[in-house]
Design a protein around this nucleic acid. Structure first.
Lengths: 209, 209
DNA sequence: CACGCGTTTGAACGGCCGGTCAAGCGAGAC
DNA sequence: GTCTCGCTTGACCGGCCGTTCAAACGCGTG
């Protein structure tokens, strides 16, 4: 069957995508196979026809979703010239709720699910490490670019700087996504920009609201 | 019954404590009432005699454990005079695996469980916010002390500074507790101390190993 | 048209586990 | 001794949900 493989791939993808959405909405613990089936518009039985177990599907869905985010961000950033603007864009994308068009409160919710699962599931731990190191490498690339162009005056090791900025983003994003009343979306954005400017050595210009 | 109330309270406490240990070992998702009963050395039925539901018990266990950590840390820190040393101690306590005597890989694992639950459980979200703000207030108090004594030269708002340091610790601790090969216990400690010194404005002295 | 095969369905199975409950236990009161 | 009452037990119930499976479906082929 010529369309068979293609359709098989589509289904696979459709189901993973549906799974990611359900996890985002209901959380890993409350995600049922029947929910995923419903979301994908197929019968529960079909899920297990394409995936050997619920667990495998959930793992794949988690890494898939984070992968998507990374790829989208990476593509966007690559189109920007200035390292300072690249960094601003990366921060825009990282602050939960800052960009209305990406407005689901999700990517970060999925990250937390990944973390909790990675605590005990070695495969997930491995995937997480790869994902995270790739993200830090993305930041480091921006930093190196800025150092090379003279936009950033700090001479410190780019990997160390990116670790600091990445960790700050993670820590703040947790508070924001959990609706801490003292850590709003706007405050996180401001703080992250200020720390980045201070850490990397560049001047903050008035930002677009 | 005179010993009745006391024994009732002990049981309550014993069970919460057992629950916290089980959650630490097996994770929230894999924690069964029978596990908690076994750990506490009682029958499964008794758990539901003292708690109206498994969910309530788990919530209480999570906040209880984090509470314990805060109180222990707070007590220790209060005994130290120098703000710089208070901060070092706080960082020692915060870096997973840094102090062998507290060596379980746990407090942070429990935090991640709290986060994931707080995403959808409003009561847990409320508790988490209180716990977290109290922790940030603890840092802020140290910062204010250091500013007052002249140990820290930064004049920035103490709440803002403590938010930055707290978030950095959170973000790094995640990597460490999840065994990221590039973010070791030692590296986290070094990075956190360096950033704190830079952020607050003090000189780093050679540390005790 | 009829056959074959990959896909899809949904009913049914079976294990697990939270929660209930009737029955025991034991320490004090009298 | 015996009565009471709170504490404790563990068997049991009932529902849920992951997984299995036999049957149907439908498209492409000959």
């Amino acid at each position: 069957m010529s369309t068979g493989n293609a359709k098989g791939k589509d289904r696979h993808r459709e189901i993973v995508d549906a799974a990611a959405r359900v996890i985002t909405d209901r959380g890993l613990a409350e995600t049922r196979i029947s929910d995923i089936a419903e979301r994908a518009g197929v019968s529960p039985g079909l899920i297990l026809y394409y995936f050997e177990s619920k667990d495998r599907l959930l793992s794949e869905a988690l890494t898939f979703a984070n992968d998507q985010f990374y790829l989208r961000a990476s593509r966007e950033i690559r189109r920007i010239d200035s390292a300072r603007e690249q960094l601003r864009r990366l921060i825009d994308l990282s602050v939960p709720g800052y960009l209305p068009e990406y407005g689901r409160l999700d990517e970060w919710a999925l990250w937390i699910e990944v973390w909790v699962r990675a605590l005990r599931d070695p495969d997930m731990a491995k995937d997480r490490e790869v994902l995270d190191q790739r993200w830090r490498a993305q930041i480091a690339e921006i930093v190196r670019g800025g150092q090379a162009s003279g936009e950033f005056s700090s001479a410190e090791d780019a990997d160390e700087l990116s670790l600091r900025i990445g960790a700050l983003i993670d820590g703040l994003a947790i508070q924001v996504v959990l609706n801490d009343s003292l850590v709003t979306t706007e405050r996180m954005h401001r703080t992250t920009m200020e720390v980045a400017a201070q850490t990397l050595g560049f001047e903050l210009e008035p930002a677009s609201p």
